[in-house]
Design a protein around this nucleic acid. Structure first.
Length: 675
DNA sequence: CGCGATCGCGCC
DNA sequence: AAAGGGCGCGATCGCG
């Protein structure tokens, strides 16, 4: 491949012309913080572009825009730095030649922008939302318009089980090539011009090759429509990444003060109850305190649930000691009479919120690895379209998909931190019972199916099937607030439905239902007798999945979603029963979890593209599996809500599912007010 | 000191 | 007889 360092306008114009004629290119941005000492190089709305890398058929180009150092070492200087003991020491630091004259950002974007503005030119990159969002601020906030190919997504569609999709690992495993032992991309400005140039050349070269490798595979595997949807989604995610979510920073600060005090109080209460100090964030130390006999300074509690490794050791025939037992919430909750267990539970509730959400968002200036996630009252989460094997999103830095739900006081406080910008409002919509609707859809008849058509709630329906009573009667009782009926719905119905889509066993089911093992078994038997179509469907799906093999059909055993998204699970053929049954649960669950993700992703694309057509300032800001959150001007709330409902359930998406798709909506000032 | 494993826990 | 799907992240702890 031809590789060029671009230092003049003419050189850049030539590259742009070649790319324009090819109609397809890769670009990759290397960035630095918005200001010295600021930790936002990974935040596209704020960072600064330092390099742009380009690739197209047969060539790459690297464009520095103010790289601070050259390549040759011309001397050495002593740099006084304080080490961790507070001592000042002189470090020898190489001095580099001055860098060459480079193009400035404005000039580069002037010349490159026609590529970004041309809907007929396809563009791609590895983890592409970052690059799309990074360049947007140099073009008036506009995301480049052409088809956007994220090469990680492309790879993921054809190999969803791969653990690491980073370029470093991909080049090593697929191309047998290593080029970045030093993580140059993390701090490009510290490396020599030539090192960055080579790094960037490799990045765009292999992104281009990945694109060319994956595209035919995707077509061959019949995933073209899904691929088209995911490509359009990449642009949506870039927009979300630019936008971010507003946080009530005043409340966040107040919450930090309140929770720090409360956690401290509760920590002292634990020590008082235990009669000694220990590290109450350490599971091993909690085990020692709770499960060791009184004679050895413990509370002498009888453990009843093993940890994962504890269970494995028991399976190997070892005799349990205190280190085998779990100290999780459920285990501790079973000792309501023990003061230490109670005190630990109280402490953990506040400490979890304090460390994960409050400090997690604000960052800890004293800790190295705890950067702030709030910038001028905005959090910029990274929604990752290729995070889960089922097709669901992941969300990182920070994860806004595990914000406490507004069911508890603390949950309301945390979720209430997420607010609409001034003059704006949040439109929240979530699919009702989407996984169960999909289960009924795929089976195509039976109790669920009838229930959904008659408007019977699926948990009520399942409770009725488990107790052998008339579903419509039970539904009436639930609506009439009959206590036993509501309990049956919430405990029995919900639990069995969860157990169905997740594949939980009877032991788990009993504990979820809050009844004895025997009673749970009885309910499950009645349920299975009344809904044979469900277990029949499961067997059929797994049989179908196992029919596949590389030799027979070209695919490993797998299941598929509504849009044909594959989950390949070779372990469906494992002889090891544990592993095989795990794969069976994954395979079955994938159909509903993955189809739900298909619908949500598709709805996001529909909403975003329609908004662009009508030119409204409405933006998706959050996606939480079956829930979408949009921010819009207050006066647009109703219209925006209508459009969101259309995107999620209207013509063009409803046809995919043979039962009515339903959403619940809310128009709110802060996220805690929904639901 | 960085890294991975483990445990635990927030969400859907 | 037994079987909880999918994430990201915080804290601790042992290892190299």
């Amino acid at each position: 491949m031809i590789s060029s360092l671009i230092l003049t306008e003419d050189q850049l114009r030539r590259e742009v012309e070649i790319i324009g004629n090819t109609g397809k290119f890769v670009f990759d941005m290397e960035t630095i913080p918005s200001a010295p000492g600021m930790d936002d190089r990974g935040v596209p709305a704020r960072n600064q572009a330092l390099w742009m890398g380009l690739a197209t058929k047969g060539r790459t180009a690297q464009i520095p825009m103010g790289h601070p150092i050259g390549t040759k070492v011309i001397g050495e200087r002593l740099d006084p730095r304080t080490d961790k003991n507070g001592k000042v020491r002189n470090f020898r630091v190489p001095v580099y030649e001055r860098p060459p004259e480079q193009l400035d950002r404005a000039t580069v974007f002037d010349i490159v922008n026609p590529l970004f503005a041309d809907p007929d030119i396809q563009q791609g990159g590895h983890g592409f939302t970052f690059d799309l969002a990074t360049v947007a601020k140099y073009r008036g906030g506009l995301i480049p318009v052409g088809k956007s190919v994220c090469t990680i997504e492309a790879h993921h569609l054809t190999d969803e089980n791969r653990m690491r999709y980073g370029m470093k690992y991909v080049t090593k495993d697929l191309y047998g090539y290593t080029y970045d032992d030093e993580n140059v991309g993390k701090t490009v400005e510290k490396y020599t011009l030539e090192m960055v140039r080579h790094y960037l050349h490799c990045d765009v070269k292999y992104a281009w090759l990945e694109w060319q490798r994956c595209e035919p595979l995707i077509i061959e595997q019949g995933l073209e429509e899904l691929w088209d949807m995911e490509c359009r989604l990449t642009s949506v995610l870039a927009d979300m990444r630019c936008k971010g979510v507003m946080i009530d920073t005043k409340r966040l600060d107040e919450l930090q003060i309140e929770l720090t005090a409360l956690a401290g109080e509760r920590e002292r209460a634990v020590y008082a109850a235990a009669g000694k100090k220990f590290n109450l964030n350490s599971p091993p130390q909690k085990q020692a305190i709770l499960y060791k006999p009184v004679s050895e300074g413990g509370e002498g509690l009888e453990g009843w649930r093993f940890t994962k490794t504890g269970q494995e050791k028991v399976d190997l025939g070892q005799t349990p000691d205190h280190t085998f037992y779990s100290t999780d919430d459920e285990a501790l909750s079973s000792y309501p009479d023990n003061a230490v267990a109670r005190a630990i539970l109280d402490y953990q509730e506040t400490n979890k919120v304090l460390t994960t959400y409050v400090i997690g968002y604000k960052g800890d200036p004293d800790a190295k690895d705890k950067p702030a996630r709030v910038f001028d009252s905005i959090i910029y989460p990274d929604f990752v379209q290729y995070a889960a094997g089922t097709g669901r999103f992941g969300c990182r830095e920070p994860n806004l998909q595990n914000v406490p739900a507004p069911r508890t006081t603390l949950g309301k406080l945390v979720r209430g931190l997420f607010i609409a910008r001034p003059g704006c409002i949040l439109v929240v919509a979530d699919y009702s019972q989407i996984e169960l609707v999909l289960l009924a859809h795929f089976i195509g008849f039976g109790a669920f199916w009838d229930g959904f058509l008659k408007g019977i709630d699926p948990h009520t329906m399942t409770a009725a099937m488990a107790m052998g009573v008339d579903p419509e009667l039970l539904q009436q009782q639930v609506h009439g607030n009959v206590l036993e009926a509501k309990n049956a719905r919430n405990k029995y119905g919900k639990s069995i439905n969860f157990a169905t889509v997740y594949g939980a066993g009877l032991k788990k089911l009993a504990s979820m239902m809050g009844v004895s093992y025997d009673k749970a078994r009885g309910f499950k038997r009645t349920y299975d007798r009344n809904t044979p179509e469900i277990s029949d469907y499961r067997s059929e799906i797994l049989r179908e999945a196992r029919r596949h093999s590389k030799a027979r059909t070209g695919f490993p055993p797998h299941t598929k979603t509504l849009l044909g998204r594959m989950r390949r699970l070779p372990m469906l053929l494992a002889h090891n029963e544990k592993k095989r049954m795990y794969a069976e649960r994954q395979a079955f669950n994938h159909i509903f979890q993955g189809s739900s993700a298909d619908l949500t992703k598709m709805a996001m694309v529909r909403f975003h593209e329609r908004v662009k057509e009508i030119g409204k300032p409405w933006h998706l800001i959050l996606t939480v599996h079956d829930e979408l959150v949009v921010e819009c001007p207050e006066e647009d709330a109703e219209a925006c809500c209508d459009l969101l409902v259309w995107a999620m359930t209207g013509e063009g998406i409803q046809e995919l599912v043979s039962l009515p798709l339903k959403v619940e909506t809310a128009i709110v000032k802060n996220w805690a007010s929904a639901k």
